[in-house]
Design a protein around this nucleic acid. Sequence first.
DNA 1: CTCTTCATGTAACTAGTTACATGATTAC
DNA 2: GTAATCATGTAACTAGTTACATGAAGAG
Lengths: 182, 182
Amino acid sequence: MSLKHAVLVLLEAEPASGYDLLKRFNERMGYFWNASHQQIYKQLKTMHEAGDIDCQEEVQAGRPDRKVYSITPQGHGELLTWLAKPVKPNKINDSLLVKMYAGHLRDSDVILEEVRDHRQIHETMLQTFQAMEAEYQALVPEEQLPFKLPYLTLRRGILGEQSWLAWADEVEQALAGVAEQV
Amino acid sequence: MSLKHAVLVLLEAEPASGYDLLKRFNERMGYFWNASHQQIYKQLKTMHEAGDIDCQEEVQAGRPDRKVYSITPQGHGELLTWLAKPVKPNKINDSLLVKMYAGHLRDSDVILEEVRDHRQIHETMLQTFQAMEAEYQALVPEEQLPFKLPYLTLRRGILGEQSWLAWADEVEQALAGVAEQV
DNA sequence: CTCTTCATGTAACTAGTTACATGATTAC
DNA sequence: GTAATCATGTAACTAGTTACATGAAGAG
């Protein structure tokens, strides 16, 4: 039930439309939050009906009207309440590992190929995150201060991707070893 | 849609009841698959109706009858089809990082406390995984062979937890640093 | 006598996916 | 001319959570 709270966190910083929120999730929180536009628009509707957010409609010519949402005092209260409650550690359900576990039903080559495909995706993500890190590190300390906590979440993304790639190395070594034996 | 396939993978190895499956998920796949008993029982019912699994009812005295499910040829086919299709990388939605991102709305101390609570959980998991790793490593090479792929999934669990703990170290350093400045 | 294990589910709900639906504007 | 960006949604579906429901057997 945290899409709601992720939205509140973003709106607490600055009002935004559903479209804006989608971009912010992708650009600034991609390593810890993902949501589709369908999910976001539905959630905004629910939250507006519940009174957690206000809506200001900006009429536009030639394209749909922009609905700019902002957090209400009630929404702010909701957010603070949620922040004060402990969250459970994330549940992990990883399909790729299910496939790896059942790998004896497939060719080693096919498994390796899939791991390599995923590796490319993870490498790209790591590069993106490291580019963001470089931007942060280029700031002088006073400018860094307000981004200290977001930067820590970015570190989680970087360490997570590096760990994934280290695992992929182990997998490729182990499975390439099998191929040589054959 | 992979709970179905995770169940098929387990049943492909050996018939099991819903209760058995729950235990196997927790004991042997805890680092990459989690499901509640409610979810499992519902899924088994659906899969039985679809013909992917067979059901043998074992009548018992004094406790509910045990329903032992086994994979059908159709289910086996389903599994092979799924294994041949690429899966998308896992989507990450991590509430703890949402809270971290919004940490300026809270006390540093409270954040630190929550990270420490999570650290304990992750340390316990790492210890469990490492105990499993030690068991595997105690086997002679011929005995290791059939567990090669499950062992690789275990490695993912271990590397993942180690990475999480390394991140927690960074967070504690960064936030303790703030506390000292105050 | 209390806790854990065995063994099963239903019901109501929240969360997320996939497919469908529209259409102007701007950059290359 | 074609692709990306801007900007919104609905509908049907699959996945997962939370609360409720039962009750004997065995370990300490």
